[in-house]
């Protein structure tokens, strides 16, 4: 078995200090491999998004260590982290976070530009990525003229710009109807299963659990339960059977 891509070793994140300190993530340890579609579930305020930000090098842990492809990243400064994010990580957000002044294809091109791909090559790749997420027809539409599902597909294409091995998604179906949400999650699962990426998704939606390889449950900053593919399917069928 190859080395894990992303390792969290007793990682904690505390906001504030003294009496006002809030522990958002408490001693979480994880080893995540490529080719897996991992869901993180839990109630609001359980620390899911903070954990996602730690994994995405957007926050530094207060304690513990983080390794990205065997390189420790927990102590790196803000000048070193952006290139790592560009190379290894793609983000998908609940609210899409598209640039309203840019068309669908330009939103993807901008992410490619940040990764050093410019001009015609950037346009070619952006078109390919948008085709990959099933959005070849509305390339030149501004975000305001796209549906929620279409916006999330653009965001997904943008996350794939530069071909990052890891995709971190924060409730990407939160603003979508169930059918569209399911389509987006299927796309994410496909990125893990057919392209070998690590896709880590925070969600509240239990209906997509059947697509995941692993499901983590978080409460009060800690991972309290973990289910692999087989267990998950049993749980789902067990509920259905009742």
């Amino acid at each position: 078995m190859s080395a894990p891509w992303l390792v969290l070793d007793r990682v904690s994140k505390v906001y504030g200090d003294g009496t006002s300190a809030v522990v958002a993530v408490r001693e979480v340890s994880l080893e995540l491999q490529g080719g897996r579609f991992v869901l993180l579930m839990g109630p609001s305020g359980s620390g899911k998004t903070t954990l996602l930000m730690l994994m995405g090098c957007l926050l530094k842990p207060t304690q513990g260590r983080l390794f990205l492809f065997e390189r420790e990243i927990s102590a790196l400064d803000e000048r070193t982290l952006p290139p790592l994010r560009r190379r290894y990580i793609g983000f998908v957000f609940q609210t899409f976070n598209l640039f309203p002044a840019l068309t669908a294809v330009e939103n993807v091109e901008l992410a490619l530009n940040l990764k050093g791909i410019n001009g015609r090559e950037a346009r070619r790749r952006a078109l390919t990525l948008l085709a990959r997420v099933g959005l070849s027809e509305r390339l030149h539409f501004l975000p305001r003229d796209l549906s929620g599902g279409e916006k999330q597909r653009v965001a997904l294409a943008r996350a794939l710009a530069g071909d990052p091995p890891i995709i971190l998604a924060d409730e990407p179906t939160g603003m979508l109807d169930s059918r569209t949400g399911r389509q987006i999650v299927e796309l994410l699962a496909d990125l893990a299963h057919t392209e070998g990426r690590l896709v880590f998704m925070v969600t509240h939606d239990p209906r997509v659990r059947d697509l995941a390889d692993d499901v983590l449950f978080m409460e009060d900053g800690s991972i309290v339960a973990r289910e692999s593919t087989g267990d998950l399917r049993e749980v789902v069928s067990g509920k259905e059977g009742r």
Binding site: R86, F93, A111
Partner: peptide
Amino acid sequence: LKEFGTLKAIGASNAD
């Protein structure tokens, strides 16, 4: 501001 935050998240440096 949120767009700048998004840019940071997708790999833009402060210089960008």
